[in-house]
Design a protein around this nucleic acid. Sequence first.
DNA 1: GATGAATGAGAATTCATTCAT
DNA 2: TATGAATGAATTCTCATTCAT
Lengths: 210, 210, 210, 210
Amino acid sequence: MGVATPAQLVNQYGQKMGRKGQLTRQRIMSIALKMLGNSSYKDLTVSDLAAKAKVSNATFYVYFKDIEDVLFACVEAASLDMNAMFDILNETWTSENLKSQLEKFVDSFNTLWEKHRVELRIRNIEADQGNARFLNFRQLSTIELLNRFGEKLAELNPRLENPEYISMVIYTAMERLAALNQMGILGSNSISRRGLDDAIVELLYMALKK
Amino acid sequence: MGVATPAQLVNQYGQKMGRKGQLTRQRIMSIALKMLGNSSYKDLTVSDLAAKAKVSNATFYVYFKDIEDVLFACVEAASLDMNAMFDILNETWTSENLKSQLEKFVDSFNTLWEKHRVELRIRNIEADQGNARFLNFRQLSTIELLNRFGEKLAELNPRLENPEYISMVIYTAMERLAALNQMGILGSNSISRRGLDDAIVELLYMALKK
Amino acid sequence: MGVATPAQLVNQYGQKMGRKGQLTRQRIMSIALKMLGNSSYKDLTVSDLAAKAKVSNATFYVYFKDIEDVLFACVEAASLDMNAMFDILNETWTSENLKSQLEKFVDSFNTLWEKHRVELRIRNIEADQGNARFLNFRQLSTIELLNRFGEKLAELNPRLENPEYISMVIYTAMERLAALNQMGILGSNSISRRGLDDAIVELLYMALKK
Amino acid sequence: MGVATPAQLVNQYGQKMGRKGQLTRQRIMSIALKMLGNSSYKDLTVSDLAAKAKVSNATFYVYFKDIEDVLFACVEAASLDMNAMFDILNETWTSENLKSQLEKFVDSFNTLWEKHRVELRIRNIEADQGNARFLNFRQLSTIELLNRFGEKLAELNPRLENPEYISMVIYTAMERLAALNQMGILGSNSISRRGLDDAIVELLYMALKK
DNA sequence: GATGAATGAGAATTCATTCAT
DNA sequence: TATGAATGAATTCTCATTCAT
């Protein structure tokens, strides 16, 4: 379920990594995320990152092949967390708690996106630009959840004609709105996040209620 | 209505452009689009573009300030076409033709995106990364259409609680799916474009029917 | 006859080279040769060469792909001169002037090697290490002369059993001794250049005289 | 006679080497030779060699000062074998067995070169580029053999005017042809190794026969 | 209107080498 | 005996950009 982060045991030169090495690798990753939180993605250079992580350029290359490599490692790590969404879908949904479960689903999704906004933005930008590694990874990390979501819709309203497509449309909207939200775009014109979430819940509710 | 492309009459040196100059400028723009169709966005450099457009680097700077400048010019030009969406919203929608109008709306949107896939992808990537010029331009080119769409929904079902939010959710899904579609992502796992469009129409139909 | 240097008309970016550009290219080449005259081959770096030629690193890359590229250009240019050897072979050799013609042949060869010692050393080092471009070029520039030399031997002594092999053995010795001579190796132990040349002439004379 | 390889008993830190240490040192040397057999000489780096020899970079420095140091060790080891040439010269050469002895001499030389092609190529490349250590070593390992060969020629044909020069010319050709042969250069244009060896024997025979 | 020529600046990348363990 | 970890110091290479013609 979801995609696991492989334990990284050797560095770029094939050496086994000890405790110290793993810490350094980790430090580089978190500094990278911090840097991407502020400035644009294009500005992230190896020199800059290495400097901010207090290691030499050469050390960077001990642990990563290039900038993309760090980013992918971050994205991989973040993806683990997304598995929490499955738990909600596996709970019991009844016509009584339908609305609140839908709200919970939407809220949890938003929360997770907020937590990993940087990684998920990177993942999408790269995948959208055709980067195969990220594209493939996104595919893998999304498809299971999407399937499970579609099943849930079918189960809740058996008369729904094409639940798997409805699930994808809604999921797409949720993700895109989460992404836009982070960029401070939504807040601009009197559009509230709350209202959008309600609209999603509403659309689903209309589709599922009997 | 929409955003107009200002007729570019002077080059970077403030000189009035004659026929030949405008052709050169135009050629650079179309080569840029062609190049972006294939490879990733990051690979587009001034030197590369100039070479492919068969002009010297120096000539590039006669017509554009930098790469972003060409891209923006392309995006601006593409945006004019999107105005066609208004025409459909301005037609008369009745309960009789509701479904077919919805289908028409979704189809037209997809067609326009297909036509300007490169420009719109660029616009979104840049805006998503926080580029103010593109962000602002996207805002401007989207908001009017979004408002008009929201009004239409309110008009069709006056009991709809938050039509402007519904319109945004649906619009967001439409756009994102159009973008993903271009990347050949959707076709992969037995998910058909047709099915997604139907799902969008279905969601709207459920929300609007009395 | 021999291998011609193609007139280099465009730079690495495909631009036509004007007078000034060609001079710059030429300057880089001659500085490279000067530098190789002194220090070892491995020490020649782009930065170093560019600095000594009073151009920026970037300018180097306008005219050459890399260090090997300059070297090859130098080798190509030098090779033209070697064609003078043909003239001597095309003269009339008789039993009367045989010895003096042999001496002239050997002397001329040495003189040309002395003149282009740097380029020819580079050519051989690269070819010997398996560099295809130089290997191929050496093949091309040697084979014709070798053939002509073999013919001459056959013509002078028709009873000679394998003139083409004799010519190659002698040519090989001549070249190698020329190369060693430049390195100041021969002079060391009471071995004189003169003596070696005489020995070559002597060997040929013994093989050719009736 | 020849140059002996000093038994290397201590490592770079002056510590006496035990069995395990000697094996490691040996392994690094043989991997180095293997690597040089394939790719070009310039590509051999400490990191690469250490990785391929399955030791850490640091371990490399336990046994060698730098890459040149390994190479020299290899060259030294190979050189011992070359002493076999003396044995042939010390046999009795008569006018009856002259031709077959000459053939044996040439053949043995080729065989030895083939066996140590990598080391001898390295030795010559380094020496040719002016590396004093290798230059000096080559001088030492060659001069004795060269002298002995010259004496033999003088002994066989006392009227030969400059036997020591003839010996050097022939030796030079032999070595160079052996080197070229290894590079697969000779085989290319219908030139057979056999023919060249015959030519060398022939030249010597013509010079020695009464 | 167009372009040869040149370059400053900086980013990526690689290597040999050291040292504490 | 062996090696994780780290790095200083080059070096290559590329790009946007300018300017005189």
